[in-house]
Every structure is written in C-alpha cells, then in structure tokens.
Design a protein around this nucleic acid. Sequence first.
DNA 1: CTCGGAACGC
DNA 2: GCGTTCCGAG
Length: 508
Amino acid sequence: MSTMLHQTQPQVAIQDHIHQTPDRYQTHMKHNLAIFHIDLRCCGGMDCNCVSDLLIPPVPALWTPGIAFPDWAYKPESSPGSRQIQLWHFILELLQKEEYNGIIAWQGEYGEFVIKDPDEVARLWGARKCKPHMNYDKLSRALRYYYNKRILHKTKGKRFTYKFNFSKVVLVNYPILDMANSPFFLAQNHFNGSTSTPDCSPEAIQSLFPRLPDSGRGTSLFDRTTAAPGPEGDKLRLDSFPFLSTGAPCYTKPPSLLGPYARNPPFDYPWGFNPYLPGAFSLNNCPKLPPGSLYPSQFYPNPLQSSLSQLPHPFSSLLPTAEAGERGTTGGTNGTAGGQPIRLCLPPYPGSLSLGRMDIGASLLAERERERERERAEANPPGTGGGSLGLGAGLQSPSERRGGLKQDPESDSDLEITDLSDCSSDNDNDHVFRKGPSLASRSQIVLDGKKGSVLPPVSSLPPTVSPHPLKSLKPVSPRPPSRPLSLSPPLPPHEKHRETETLKMIHS
DNA sequence: CTCGGAACGC
DNA sequence: GCGTTCCGAG
C-alpha cells in the first residue's frame, strides 16, 4: 500500500486550463477542440498541484446557443471555492474509464459496481482530494454518506459492491430534468426495484423538461409544426438538450459485460445515462475515445448520422428520423446547433413492456399539451413575468408536483423521487409506487390498459428479441391516461370511478 | 466488512 | 453541504 501511495499516476497535461469563467469557457470550447486530461497526481503539502476539480466539464452544452445551464454545471471547474468534486462523481469517472476497470467496474445489475481494489480506489480518491491518508475505510464512510442521500446503496452480501441510483444521479446532475414529475423516470427506477416500465410517450419525455429555458422558440420539446399527429409526428426537440447528445455510437454494455450478462438488457437506461456507456453520466457523455480524449466527440461532426436509427429504442420513432432529418443533409439544415443533428443516446426499454407506450395516443397527447399550455397561460398571464425560465424542481408550482402529492417531509432533497430508505437489493420489488396514488395511477397507465396488472421485475423478463421493440408491436387504440388527481380537471364520473378502482387495486 | 455517530475542516 | 477522520459495534 504505502508503495502505491506515491506511485506516479497517469500524468496529465491540462492542455488548456479550465479555470475560466463560463463565458470564456464557452467561447473557448466553441473554437477549441482541446483534449483534456485529468491529473491524478497526488498532491503534496502546500504545493498542491491537484486539478481535482477538473472533472469532466460540461462541455457539450456550453456552446449551443439559446441554452442556459444551471450553475452546477459550471461550478466544479470554473471557479475556485466552488464545491469540489464529489465522490460519487469521481466513482463514475473511474467507472467510465477502461483503464480503471481493474480496480473498479460495473458489474452485476443496473448501476451496480464493484470496487475490486478498495485501497487503490481510495488512493486515487485521496490523490484527487489531496488527502494522502485516505483509505478505504474513510472512503467507504463517504460512500455510506450517500445512502441517506439515496445516490448510492450497498449491495448487501457482496463485498465492495455498491449500486447507483440512476434517477438520483441524473437529478443531481441535471436538475432541469424534471424527473420527479416524469412518469418515465418514475417507472424507470431500477434502483429500488421498480418493475414498471417508463412512459416513453412524447408527453412523458416532455415531462422531463417542463421548464426548459424559453428561448422564444416555443416551449414544447416536440416539434409538431411539421409533423402529422401521431407517434411518428412528435419529434423531440433534441436541440433543446445538447448535453444529452452523443453524436456517436454508444456502447450498450460495459466492456466488462460484453460477454456473459445476457440477463441485462443491453438497453435499459433512459436519456443516455446508461452507466455502461462510456461517459454515461453527464458531463462527458461521449463515446469511448482513445485515452486522453475525453471531450472532443461532441464537437466533431457526427460521423454516424444514422446512429439513432440504429439504436433499438422506443424513442427512435420520436426522434428526428434519418429520413426526415438527414436525407440530403450534410449538416446545417435540420435546425440543430452546429448543423448537426443532435444525437440522443437513449437506450430503450426492455421491449415487450413498452407496449403500454402505445396507449397514449398522439391526439390525446396533443390535447394534453394544449391543456398544459392553457394552464400555463392562466397561471402566468402575459405580462406577469411568471415566466418559464426557471430551472430545477425547486421552482415547480405546487400544482405541477404531481398534484401536490409528492410531499415527502422526510425527503432530504427537493429532487426526491421515491422513497428509497429501505432500498436494498434484497427487497427491491415493492416500494416504488407506494408513495402516492398518482404514482400508482401513472404506473397503471402503462400497464397495457389492464388495471391492476403487475409487471414482473425487469430482470425476470426475457431479454428483448427485437432490436426495435416498438416496431414489433401493434399500436393500441389510444386511451386516455389517468392523471394525478389534483392535476386533473374534474373528471367525468366514469373516469373518477376508474381512478377509484385503480387506487383500490393499489392499496390492496 | 459494514454501519453510523460524532467532531471537525473547508 | 460534503466530506474526513476516528471509532465502537454488529
């Protein structure tokens, strides 16, 4: 151990220093495809050379016009005194780099990773934080600290094995993603064993981004101006979230899992947060690149124009199609920044479960969209300045928060989604939808219209055969989804009855 | 090995 | 707020 303590780490040159103001950084990144490296040298004493806070700057988003990013996106690397790198982020960083697979790697279930060499991980962490006396005991204490925050939990019975709560991680990293209101993410939460599937409907996707900065281009994430109604017509405005773009092919499994883990669907992570993707978590959501090339891909012309269409993904039908967006296009004509179609690597859900997605008809979606617009208009009449520029769940109006049902006094975060307080891998299967009837209602929606049906754990389902799950499905006639109670306008009696029945089913 | 309390620093 | 350090307990 002690010999490793001062072992020379991969030496790194920060080819261009990141300690700039965000503006300068933006400008810089716009014109400079500098390759960044991360210095893991252990610092010593007063002459701390650490660049510990250089972790993965939010490069991809910065240069895109019209996008405002939350403060957190800049803090770690932009200003001295800003909060430092967080351990979980560091862990993710290690996890995404193949060179560290020997000491820490994804393994097992969703988001699960194992620290193969605790001492080494601790050493690296200590190096990063300029804490030469760091050890696994201390590091693990910090990890345990995350239990309460529900960012991590321990995989019981497995040594050095922890598991990420993706939803939480995503929320922490992308507070503008309103996962708390998203049926997609509510259903996605594998962390605590949710067995439901996400609502992949355009509306669900929209719900992830209810408060994107209104740049005057319209607030909907789905551009319906040129598309006919229908699933194929709802086009996600990916140009709104360039930080979710990848512009490159994505791994569907971690390198270490390319072999035997057939049980893991190769696509189960929403919004490109597949932990098995290189750079899955946020800031350098980019394809695996040669060592030392952490960021450039987003700035390069997309070499795989058809990468999305190749993805076996239920979203693919929602995204600008290759035909629509790329035919005859070499860039610049589809309205996306930089002239390149922004690619969103959205691993799809285990296929058969997606059937419910089709439940939500486009016309209904459009109608609900219009309703929301009306609500917004009422809530913020022109001139009141009530605006839609807010970012983050904290600015949600009460009526937006799942009808006010979310309230969790125990929550340690306004980004809380579900109660994971007893989330262990031992009993992962029964907590998610206890939180409130609205959750349950939402989950009901996606259950193929069968009230009270219970989905098996995802892990128990056969892997999806079709690489294009939705394409193998027959559309179901649209059926109005139920809503969070207090969000709903007065329901007609039969709808109320349905809600009641649903609740009964849930409570039983 | 794991857990969490407590004091403490930044 | 986010660890870091220490430590006793299971």
